[in-house]
Amino acid sequence: MKALQIYDRFTLALAAAAGLSLALSTLAIVVDVTLRNTGFRPFQFTSAVVEYVMLFVTVAAAPWLARIGAHVAINALVDRLPGGLQSLLGRAVIVLCVVVLEVLAWRAGALTIQEWGFGSVDIRSIAIPGWLAYALLCAGFGLMGLEFLVKLLRGETRAGGDGAH
């Protein structure tokens, strides 16, 4: 299962990138404020980039969070069901997650292409290409859905955790 191993590593690497981007955002804000208060000109890109980092963290962490069961779910009611029904229902919920997320990924992908065609720009403290947010959502939804599919193939019956901190 070489392919699966590579895939697992890729998911982990994305989550690591999310962590790194949070660390860099922290430093960027510190540098920005320090420059501003010492008579230098702060970088204009900081606030726009940090805002987009929030979206990046959301989508980059999503598949890995799905793997470790850190997307909060309420399992209290399902837990009371008999075992067979519980795993059947669990699988059905995971399938539904895959469908929902892949539908969103498909539409977000279509909109990415559309925005690219419009040449739109998101004007913040600096201008950011308009398709970027859509592309991030497309990738995030798509990979998160894929992770649920992998969960299903691995025989798991639970979509989310009760907190996996």
Partner: peptide
């Protein structure tokens, strides 16, 4: 949510 779907996906 009662079915155990992750809260975020349930909203989606």
């Amino acid at each position: 949510m009662a079915l155990g779907m992750p809260v975020a996906v349930a909203f989606f």
